[in-house]
């Protein structure tokens, strides 16, 4: 780093930044420490609070409910990686091609749902999915398929898919814009040269565009993975984790332990477990993906 314009004493620097560090710590770091502390107790919100060692963590380890929730996070992750990224990639390729006009319009329109509140979006979809007067039922009725409409949010077998559709609809635009930005950097003359040599569009996409897009795709994959650990609003608004625990995710599980069952000690342990699992997942995926890139 080059030298700064003026010499400033360390103390003076902290005079400026310490207030913000304290604010951040009070909101973020201290609750984390408090939660770690409480996770070793049996606190249920009242006056009784007893230190119980690592009992909560032993329980967490064997708690099927927690692991089912985590597995659901992973299920969402797989669905999102395949369908959200897949659609985003195809759409970005398509819109970025020479033939399609109004690129800016498409980009803006498809990104629009991403800026809306995911809670509000979930409520919109609650009505879209409604059996009696929802948008999908109404369309199905018009084309005579009303018997084929599934119970989107009440069938444990498909509820995760139904929720994934909502999430894909809302956030696909984020991936489209990232991928479109990446595609702009791919040298078009390489594609043209390959076409001259007799490659078709599919071949040149597979052998030229895809390898060149690798860094951008890695960004999208890590974003998608960390996004799936953050799932809460959509689930809370649409199913609350049900029916049964078929769409339960870890954040929702921690919420239920705390606010439905008042097991604050255990809920803290669940939160800490969730942080650890998500850090492992995010860091591991970064490591694996970045190593592949070097090869």
């Amino acid at each position: 780093m080059k030298k700064s314009a003026i010499k400033v004493k360390t103390g003076r620097i902290y005079l400026y930044i310490l207030p913000f560090i304290i604010m951040f710590a009070v909101a973020y770091i201290i609750p984390l420490c408090v939660a770690i502390g409480i996770s070793f107790t049996n606190w249920r919100g009242g006056k009784n609070i007893k230190f119980i060692g690592i009992d909560n963590y032993m329980k967490l380890f064997q708690d099927q409910g927690f692991w089912i929730s985590f597995l659901n996070n992973l299920k969402f992750m797989v669905l999102m990686l395949i369908f959200q990224l897949g659609f985003a990639f195809l759409f970005a390729l398509f819109v970025q091609s020479k033939r399609v006009k109004l690129k800016g319009f498409h980009r803006r329109a498809i990104f629009l749902p991403s800026v809306l509140s995911s809670f509000v979006v979930a409520l919109i979809w609650q009505i879209v999915y409604n059996k009696n007067f929802g948008l999908i039922s109404a369309v199905a009725e018009k084309i005579g398929l009303e018997d084929k409409v599934p119970l989107w949010l009440d069938d444990p077998k498909i509820v995760i898919n139904s929720l994934a559709i909502v999430l894909i609809w809302q956030f696909v635009g984020q991936y489209v814009i990232i991928l479109m930005a990446g595609l702009q950097n791919v040298d078009q003359s390489l594609m043209e040269a390959a076409m001259m040599d007799g490659a078709n569009t599919f071949q040149s996409t597979l052998h030229i565009t895809l390898p060149l897009m690798k860094p951008t795709l890695i960004v999208c994959i890590t974003l998608c993975i960390s996004g799936c650990m953050k799932l809460f609003d959509t689930i809370y608004a649409l199913t609350g984790g049900g029916p049964g625990s078929s769409s339960m995710v870890t954040a929702m599980y921690a919420y239920n332990q705390a606010f439905k069952l008042k097991q604050f000690g255990y809920a803290s342990a669940v939160s800490i477990g969730m942080i650890i699992l998500s850090l492992i997942l995010v860091l591991a995926s970064r490591k694996i993906l970045n190593r592949k890139e070097e090869v």
């Binding site: 560090i21 710590a25 984390l32 408090v34 939160s271 942080i275």
Partner: peptide, 26 residues
């Protein structure tokens, strides 16, 4: 200092829902 703020970008936000509630309740 930069590590402290980096934590904020790595931790899944909703993992803090219960901890923050407990802190403010206390």
């Amino acid at each position: 200092v930069s590590a402290i703020f980096l934590i904020g970008m790595l931790i899944p936000l909703y993992a803090l829902l219960v901890p923050m509630f407990l802190q403010y309740k206390m």
